[in-house]
Write a protein that binds this DNA or RNA. Structure first.
Length: 404
RNA sequence: GGGGAGAUACCAAAGCGGCCAACUGGGGCAGACUGUAAAUCUGUUGUCUUACGACUUCGUAGGUUCGAAUCCUGCUCUCCCCA
């Protein structure tokens, strides 16, 4: 296929990118690629520890996709070997290493999800266990001799942990080397990663140089801030929007991000055309409410299609704005005439983690039946056959109580 | 190898024999206000119990005591200093 002119490619590549080190090398590589009609090898390493992908992961995956669309060759590395070490990046404590079986299973699930973003028909998938796993101890020692302790602790998370008197296990130093060795093995032109990966990516560049391979260009994408507006998006902070999430939740969660993030999200996790971005930035400031709805729509559409996005918007208007009961509310059957405690109903529905919490919710006015706040902790109810009541717990948990 | 310090709830951090289910801050949850935004105010945040109260919890296993997060001993883990 014919490649786009270098300038046009660059513009697409630079979207949302924090840093390209060094950008001149990328220009050179692109020029040569166009001239020789030869795709660049783009490397992205993924850690198969947590297989649930969310929009945070999508940032760098989307960048990968953009390279694919530009005609370049995408290589996804499953960090089967490195996962057994545990990437220290961003961890304040050492990660538990995974077994080979877990890795295989997680990798499978990862790829399944990633195909919502990547073009898997044109994707090369490799496992770094294939080459790292067979290295001998002497190979490893030679590898370690290529860098120094001072360089290692110069890395941000290490120096922080070091200064905070937190433990750093020796094996964690090997992680960047292992990742760098991947680049030596693949001889890739570009490696993608989050800004937190900068150090690791640069190690790859250095190791390639040492092995007389043309060094890779490191391209860093920002870490997407989660829906809470402060920490990076992560499952463990529960501030994430999963790419597998149902349209309604996806839409709703997208709306719950702080206003300041609207533009960033448009830039990083949607496919709105480059030329529309300036207009969006303006709208995000002048009319954040609607801009955010546009965003929620765009995100939902990306993963579920136009119809579902429309449905999610209607659903939102219906339930939140007009305060109607969502149609997915679970039904809770109650035998006609039977006396049931409200406490038990909520517990059965898993709407609260303990009876103590339920009582607290009731005391604070967080529970209502048919729009009427429940004030009595010990409330018991009975339903006639066919009778229905709507139970609401907290902000957005609904159930339909149905006499049967 | 030698010496010293430490391990408390989601996180940080007080408490150092009974008044401790454990101060305080952050986070979370709920209410008011709103745009499922922010800011603000209020309440709440171990389990069971309508409640009184009961039970489990302060790295881990034992011990001392009427009584332990607090004292003693073993163990595990971490940090610092020296070599």
């Amino acid at each position: 296929m014919a490649f786009l002119p270098v300038e046009e490619q660059l513009e697409i590549i630079k979207r949302g990118t924090v840093e390209i080190v060094p950008v001149e090398d990328l220009v050179e590589k692109l020029k040569r690629s166009v001239k020789e009609n030869k795709p660049l090898k783009i490397k992205l390493g993924v850690d198969p520890t947590r297989p649930d992908l969310h929009l945070g992961h999508s940032v760098v995956l989307r960048k990968m996709r953009q390279f694919q669309d530009l005609g370049h060759h995408a290589i996804l590395i499953i960090g089967g070997f490195t996962a057994m070490i545990g990437d220290p990046t961003g961890q304040n404590t050492t990660r538990p290493p995974l077994t080979e079986e877990e890795v295989a299973e997680n990798a499978k699930s990862y790829i399944e999800q990633a195909q919502k973003i990547l073009d898997t028909t044109k994707l090369e998938i490799v496992n770094n266990n294939d080459w790292l796993g067979s290295m001998s101890f002497i190979d490893v020692i030679r590898l370690t001799s290529k860098t120094t302790v001072a360089r290692m602790i110069e890395r941000d998370d290490f120096s922080k942990r070091f200064n905070n008197n937190e433990p750093i296990s020796l094996h964690e130093f090997l992680y960047p080397l292992a990742q760098g060795q991947d680049s030596v093995h693949l001889e890739n032109d570009v490696e993608l990663g989050g800004t937190d990966q900068k150090f690791n990516l640069l190690v790859g560049r250095q190791l390639q140089k040492d092995s007389d391979i043309e060094p890779q260009v490191c391209l860093m994408m920002p870490l997407l801030v989660g829906t809470d507006g402060s920490a990076k998006m992560s499952k463990s902070y529960d501030n994430y929007i999963g790419i597998d999430e149902n349209p309604n939740d996806m839409y709703g969660k997208s709306l719950s991000i702080p206003d300041e993030l609207i533009y960033k999200y448009f830039e990083l996790v949607t496919d709105v055309p480059l030329e529309e971005l300036p207009g969006i930035q303006e709208k995000a400031e002048s009319d954040p409410r609607n801009a955010k709805h546009d965003l929620a729509y765009a995100i939902t559409k990306l993963y579920h299609g136009e119809e579902a996005a429309k449905g999610a918007r209607e659903h939102f208007e219906q339930t939140v704005i007009n305060k109607q009961v969502p149609d997915y509310a679970p039904e809770y059957p109650i035998t006609a005439g039977e006396v049931v405690r409200i406490l038990d109903i909520i517990s059965d529905l898993n709407f609260s983690s303990s009876n103590g919490e339920t009582k607290r919710l009731i005391k604070q006015g967080g529970v209502s039946i048919d729009d009427e706040k429940v004030s009595d902790i010990g409330l018991e109810l009975t339903l006639e056959s066919g009778e229905e009541k709507v139970l609401k717990v907290g902000k957005r948990k609904y159930a339909v109580l149905k006499g049967a």
